[in-house]
Simulated assay, not measured.
Amino acid sequence: MLLVRLYQVEDKEVMVMDGMQGFMPEANAIRLLASRKSGVGADRVIVHAGPQGKQGFRAFSADGQETELTAEDCLLASRQQMDIEIRLTDSFVEKMRQADEERLAKAC
């Protein structure tokens, strides 16, 4: 099971997840996760990427495009209090992995 947190920031939903828990999502997985139809739903996803990543975090738009971290992202990532905690099932995490693997297969 993978834990993500969903925050309401003004009129947007921002999801924060820990990419250090054995799965670092890429564009297709983020698109699936952020989808309001087949995923959890979010306008933006921030992934804790550890010390190798830029400032330790990666930010994505709902369509899976990696974007620069904003000041608001940094403030949100540092929050201790969560708005909503969501537990992703292993089955859904596997769907996210498959979405990224499909993209890699098409690129080859």
Results as ranks from 00 to 15, higher is better:
39 G>K: 09
43 D>S: 00
41 G>P: 14
79 R>K: 15
76 L>Q: 02
101 E>V: 15
16 V>T: 11
4 V>Q: 05
61 S>R: 08
2 L>W: 13
90 D>I: 05
99 A>P: 14
78 S>Y: 07
72 E>W: 05
61 S>A: 07
101 E>K: 15
87 R>G: 11
65 Q>P: 01
39 G>R: 09
6 L>A: 01
98 Q>V: 15
68 E>K: 13
37 K>S: 06
47 V>C: 02
108 C>V: 09
89 T>G: 15
30 I>H: 09
79 R>C: 11
91 S>H: 10
9 V>T: 04
90 D>Q: 14
72 E>I: 07
36 R>P: 12
42 A>Q: 03
64 G>W: 03
33 L>T: 06
67 T>C: 08
76 L>R: 04
50 G>D: 03
54 K>M: 04
15 M>Q: 10
6 L>K: 12
70 T>L: 05
37 K>P: 12
51 P>S: 00
72 E>S: 10
2 L>C: 12
105 A>V: 09
3 L>A: 10
82 M>N: 14
95 K>S: 13
75 L>E: 09
8 Q>D: 11
64 G>M: 01
53 G>Y: 01
69 L>N: 05
74 C>T: 02
31 R>Q: 14
102 E>V: 14
86 I>E: 10
84 I>W: 07
87 R>K: 14
31 R>N: 03
93 V>S: 11
31 R>E: 13
24 M>I: 07
64 G>C: 04
80 Q>G: 15
67 T>D: 04
74 C>S: 02
100 D>W: 13
23 F>H: 03
96 M>W: 09
64 G>L: 05
38 S>F: 14
46 I>T: 00
59 A>I: 01
83 D>K: 10
91 S>E: 15
